[in-house]
Nucleic acid binder design. Structure first.
Length: 492
RNA sequence: CUGGAUGUGGCGCAGUUGGUAGCGCACCUGGUUAGGGACCAGGAGGUCGCUCGUUCAAGUCGAGUCAUCCAGACCA
C-alpha cells in the first residue's frame, strides 16, 4: 500500500491527478472538464473494451450505433428521465458560423438557428427507444439486445480526470423483452458480467447490490450497481444495470402483438460502464511509484531493459532478450524490449514502474556471463536474479501470481474497512475515516437524505452477493425497525 | 450561482520601494557516462491573460474584463 497515500489524506486527489498525467494516461484539453486520452491510456481502455465486448457477445448482445444528437422533443417524453439530466445537457442551437462583421474571427450565424434544438446525448435511452419503436411489432422481434460504444456529454459543474468529465467514453446496452421476468433477469445477468469483469480482469473487488430509490437511475424501477472501494476509503460506483420496467416503452409507445394477438408494452433494461473504470483502476491499485496494472489489462505485460556499455554488449544482450520475447509472445503475452539508446537504465526502470508494467526484466554484462536475468515485479517492487533456463514458464506463472496478488491485496484492504455499525455516534466518526459501514436502514428516503445531509454518506447499495446481512434490527438514524443492513459510504 | 486563490518560455515557479525579465525541469549541440530517474560545457526559446488608465518609465500601481484552479451547491 502506498505510504504517502493515506486514507482521506489531503493529497490523495493530488496524487491521483498527478499520476494520470505522469503515467501518460491523459491530459486536460482546451475545453473545461474535457480530457485528452493519450495512447497509453487509450490502450488500457481498448483492452477493457475488448474483454467486455467478448463477455457481452457471449450473452447474445450485438453492437450497434445510434446518433449523437437527440431532438429536444424526444427528450421531453419521459418526465422523470429528463428531470434527471436536464441540468447537465449541452444543447445545439445553430448549424452555421460566419465571418465576424468586425473582421475578427467567426461568430454564430443568427440566420442559422435550428427550428428544434438538438441535445448532445447524455445517455441514449430516448433516441434508442424512438428507434426500437419501429423495430418491434411482434413477439417474434423480441428480445432486442443492443449495445453501443460511444461518447456521451454531461455538463458537470465539477470534474475530475476519468472519474467525472464533461465528455466520456462508455458502452450502453439497451434491451427490450416481452416479460418483466426476462428483463429483470437480463439486468441481473449484466451486473454479474460487470462484477466478473471487475474482479477477474481489473482485479477490483466490488460489492453487487441494489441502489436505494433515491440513488436510482432516472426512469428506472430498479438499479443494480457494482461498488468498489478506493484507497482513501471512498466508494466508487463502477457500473450500473437498470431494470426500466415499461416506462420507456410507454413513453415512446413501443408495443408488440403477443401470441394471442394482443398489444403489449415491452419491458426494458439498460446498463453501462465508462472510462470511469480507468479511474477506479488507478485509485484502487496505484502506489507512490505510479500505476499498478493487473496483467490481464496491461497493454505491456513484460518490459525488458538492456544494460550495456559497448555496442557489442548491447547487441549480445538484445539478442538474448529478443529470444525471451519470442518465447513469451508464443505464450500470448505482450512484451516490449526498451532498446532506446538515449535513455539510461535507471530512468527506464522508473518510467515503466510509473506506467504500471507488471514484470520487468533487466539484463547486462553480468547476467550475460552468468546466464541469468533480473526479474522485477511491479506489485511488490521486489527483484530476483534468475537463471535463463525456463524463464518463460516462470514469467508465465508469475503474471498469474501478480494478477491474483493485486486482487487479494485489494480485497484485504477493503475487508479491513468494511464493518457493521449500530451506533450513530460511531457512524459519524467511522464514515469520515473512510469506512464502508453496514447499517440497518428503515427503508425511507427521508432517513437516507438526513444522513446524507449530516455526513455526506450515501447508501451505496443493498448488497446481494457479498456482505449480505438479512437480520432484524433498528435503523441507525431513526431507530425504526429494519430487516437488513445496507452499505453506507462517502462516494466519488 | 457563493466564497477563496491564481494567470510570467512547453511544464513548474521567482520577480524587493515601478528602471527594460530570471530559476528549475524539459528541449538543442558536443563530450564523458550507463546494474535505480547521469554529469560537465555551450545554446535556443517569453510583446509577463486581455483592455484602458497613472507615469519620463508598468510584470510590478489603479480600474475593468476574460480564463483557470480550489472549496461549496450540483452529480445514474
Amino acid at each position: 500500500m502506498a505510504k504517502e497515500v493515506t486514507a482521506r489524506s489531503e493529497n490523495y486527489s493530488q496524487w491521483y491527478n498527478d499520476l494520470v498525467v505522469k503515467a501518460d494516461l491523459a491530459e486536460q484539453s482546451a475545453v473545461r472538464g474535457c480530457m485528452v486520452i493519450k495512447p497509453y491510456g487509450y490502450a488500457i481502455w481498448e483492452k477493457m473494451q475488448s474483454v467486455l465486448d467478448g463477455m457481452f457477445k457471449k450473452t447474445g448482445v450485438q453492437n450497434a450505433y445510434f446518433p449523437l444528437f437527440i431532438p429536444k422533443s424526444f427528450f421531453s417524453k419521459e418526465a422523470e428521465h429528463v428531470a434527471g439530466f436536464a441540468k447537465e445537457c449541452a444543447v445545439v442551437t445553430h448549424h452555421r458560423l460566419m465571418n465576424s462583421p468586425d473582421g475578427k474571427g467567426v461568430v454564430v450565424d443568427p440566420e442559422a438557428k435550428l427550428e428544434e434544438e438538438l441535445i448532445v446525448r447524455p445517455t441514449s435511452e430516448t433516441i434508442i427507444w424512438s428507434v426500437y419503436k419501429n423495430w418491434i411489432t411482434s413477439w417474434r422481434d423480441l428480445p432486442i439486445l443492443c449495445n453501443q460504444w460511444c461518447n456521451v456529454v454531461r455538463w458537470e459543474m465539477r470534474t475530475r480526470p476519468f472519474l467525472r468529465t464533461a465528455e466520456f467514453l462508455w458502452q450502453e446496452g439497451h434491451t427490450a423483452h416481452s416479460s418483466a421476468e426476462e428483463a429483470e433477469a437480463k439486468a441481473n445477468e449484466m451486473v454479474q458480467v460487470y462484477a466478473e469483469f471487475a474482479r477477474k480482469t481489473l482485479a477490483l473487488p466490488v460489492i453487487v447490490g441494489h441502489k436505494s430509490p433515491n440513488e436510482r437511475f432516472a426512469g428506472a424501477l430498479d438499479t443494480l450497481t457494482i461498488e468498489a472501494m478506493m484507497q482513501d476509503g471512498k466508494a466508487l460506483q463502477a457500473g450500473t444495470s437498470h431494470f426500466l420496467g415499461q416506462n420507456f416503452a410507454k413513453s415512446f409507445d413501443v408495443q408488440y402483438s403477443d401470441k394471442e394477438g394482443k398489444l403489449q408494452y415491452v419491458w426494458a433494461t439498460s446498463w453501462g460502464v465508462s472510462t470511469r473504470l480507468m479511474g477506479a483502476l488507478i485509485m484502487a491499485h496505484g502506489d507512490d511509484n505510479g500505476l499498478v496494472l493487473p496483467p490481464a489489462l496491461a497493454p505491456i505485460q513484460v518490459v525488458m531493459v538492456p544494460i550495456y556499455k559497448t555496442d557489442e554488449e548491447r547487441a549480445a544482450v538484445l539478442e538474448k532478450l529478443d529470444a525471451i520475447k519470442k518465447e513469451l509472445e508464443a505464450k500470448g503475452h505482450s512484451v516490449k524490449v526498451d532498446a532506446r539508446d538515449t535513455i539510461r537504465p535507471g530512468f527506464k526502470f522508473a518510467e515503466w514502474e510509473l506506467k504500471g508494467v507488471p514484470v520487468r526484466l533487466a539484463m547486462g554484462a553480468r547476467d550475460l556471463a552468468n546466464g541469468t536475468v533480473e526479474v522485477a515485479r511491479r506489485d511488490t517492487l521486489t527483484k530476483e536474479t534468475m537463471a535463463l533456463e525456463g524463464i518463460a514458464e516462470h514469467i508465465d506463472s508469475l503474471l498469474d501470481d501478480i494478477q491474483a496478488n493485486i486482487y487479494n491485496k485489494a480485497i484485504a484492504f477493503r475487508d479491513s474497512r468494511v464493518q457493521k455499525c449500530d451506533s450513530w455516534e460511531e457512524f459519524k466518526t467511522e464514515i469520515q475515516n473512510g469506512k464502508f459501514l453496514l447499517c440497518h436502514w428503515d427503508g425511507t428516503a427521508e432517513t437516507e437524505q438526513k444522513i446524507k445531509d449530516e455526513t455526506k454518506a450515501t447508501i451505496r447499495c443493498i448488497p446481494i452477493d457479498s456482505y449480505v446481512c438479512e437480520e432484524e434490527g433498528k435503523d441507525i438514524y431513526s431507530g425504526k425497525p429494519s430487516k437488513c443492513r445496507v452499505v453506507y459510504a462517502i462516494a466519488y
